[in-house]
Design a protein around this nucleic acid. Structure first.
Length: 426
RNA sequence: GGAGAGGUGGCCGAGUUGGUUUAAGGCGCUUGACUCGAAAUCAAGUGUACGCGAACCGUACCGGGGGUUCGAAUCCCUCCCUCUCCGCCA
């Protein structure tokens, strides 16, 4: 949600920045409604003040008034009341229209966000590590996984249809190892509180973080209870603080949590149909920060650094991309994607997305803090990023660490979790 | 699934016969007094948003929505949420 007042006061700047996402976007739907609403509220205030005053007098003097005087008074108040009610209904309707319109408008990109229409226009910020090239003919991750018996897509589709993954044996163990490695790193080294949240949430939570109302088709909804399977732990973790008032001393707040992520992938049928790249359920460790407005830019850099540390520990080459306006997610004001190098597909592939939402989510979810005792409440800033997406990490490990004899060398940092050094050894 | 209780400002909590309580009182917090300093005590202040309005003033907000009334935190309807007990269950 936007600060509508700010938007109206800085309409040119706000519009120019919004159009970085898409030239078709504008705040036109807000401005006319807001003006009409202001007029209605103003008129309502005046009449309501008069009504309150007369009504109070009437209540006090009713008993001592002459009968005809009282009924005249009552009549006058009645017509005043009707008029006030009409204006109230009008203001309320405009209010709802305004909010409905605002909920569908994406966040305003920060001034530093580069121009661009698609991911082709994203900017490389940095590149880390050696882009492995295999001297032998390497296998796709899904083919190798099935050959080693650690991935079973046939069984997965028997259970849930196309677009699901099933891990078995050391494959399942690898997922669990990555989960533990990520959570241990963030909670022990990077200062996060580890949380385990519900994996399904109420509708208000999905609105709070911006998945709804616009993207309802992308989410799995349980009709009987009107609850949603979370598409990312960002939803459950951020909404832990929905409706709360925090103290300045509570900030910054850093939380990390594991969850499965459920995505219908409506509209992406036919893309990345094989393997672990794009599935309806994948596992992820998510990082969430709540910060003060002054601190969020720094927090963003810190957050992306924590995600990068995971790739570096695993020895996976990556690059950090600054997303252009056209590629920004709905609620993000600025976003870094981390892309891992996949030597078999010979391409970079997103494995983490680290966004600063500023107060966009906090307004929707009503998360505030008091800068100091007695001061006025302000909205916090929220940030989050994957640290990391586990399925895609498995995919990268299978591509990067495979050997000529179709085994997988387990990255050093995972060995204590895996109990083996090599997958596929007899 | 059955039965009951309840949702009021940062927190607790009054308000149950509708009208100088159109949100009392307390805690917390801020400032001042006292003190070498602190605690305790005393005094004053302290909800949010809007009125393109800083002050004074006004209006709205007592879980959401609707209704009755000249007037609703208070009465009626409806939905949501929380808690307690029972049942079932890993």
């Amino acid at each position: 949600m936007h600060d509508v007042k700010w938007v109206l006061e800085h309409l040119d700047e706000a519009t120019a920045r919004l159009k970085k996402r898409n030239p078709d976007l504008s705040f036109d739907s807000l401005t006319t409604i807001a003006e009409a609403r202001r007029r209605a509220v103003q008129r309502h205030n005046e009449l309501r003040a008069e009504q309150n005053k007369l009504s109070r007098e009437f209540g006090a003097n009713q008993k001592t008034m002459a009968a005809d005087q009282a009924s005249a008074m009552r009549e006058r108040l009645k017509s005043l009341s009707d008029e006030v009610k009409g204006l109230e209904a009008e203001a309320k309707e405009l209010d709802e229209k305004l909010e409905a319109a605002a909920l569908y408008i994406p966040n305003i990109p920060q001034a530093v966000v580069p121009e661009g229409r698609s991911d082709a226009d994203n900017v490389v910020v940095k590149t880390w590590g050696q882009q492995v090239e295999h001297a032998f003919v390497a296998l796709d991750h899904d083919a190798l996984g099935e050959k080693l018996g650690i991935l079973d897509f046939e069984a997965a589709s028997r259970l849930a249809g196309n677009g699901f993954a099933l891990y078995r044996g050391l494959g399942a163990r690898l997922e669990r190892a990555l989960q533990s490695f990520f959570l241990d790193s963030h909670s022990e080294k990077h200062g996060y509180e580890e949380v385990l949240t519900p994996f399904m949430v109420r509708r208000e939570c999905m609105v709070g973080t911006g998945q709804l109302p616009k993207f309802e088709d992308d989410a799995y909804r349980m009709d009987a209870d009107d609850m949603f399977l979370i598409p990312t732990a960002e939803v459950s973790i951020t909404n832990m603080y929905r409706g709360l008032m925090l103290d300045a001393g509570d900030l910054p707040k850093k939380l990390c949590g594991f969850s499965p992520c459920f995505r219908r992938e409506a509209g992406s049928h036919g893309r990345d149909v094989r393997g672990l790249t794009r599935v309806h359920q994948f596992q992820k460790v998510e990082l969430v920060h709540l910060s003060t407005p002054e601190d969020s830019a720094r927090a963003h850099e810190e957050l992306v650094g924590h995600a990068e540390a995971m790739l570096e520990a695993l020895g996976l080459a990556y690059r950090r991309m600054e997303l252009c306006g056209g590629d920004l997610g709905f609620g993000a004001s600025r976003c870094y994607d981390l892309e891992v190098w996949l030597p078999v597909q010979k391409r970079w592939r997103e494995i983490s997305s680290c966004s600063n939402f500023l107060d966009f989510q906090a307004r929707r979810a009503d998360i505030r803090y008091r800068p100091e005792p007695g001061a006025k409440p302000r909205f916090v800033h929220t940030l989050n990023g994957s640290g990391l997406a586990i399925g895609r990490t498995v995919m990268a490990i299978l591509e990067v660490y495979q050997t000529a004899d179709e085994k997988i060398v387990v990255p050093e940092v995972l060995r204590r979790y895996m109990g083996v050094d090599v997958i596929g050894a007899r």
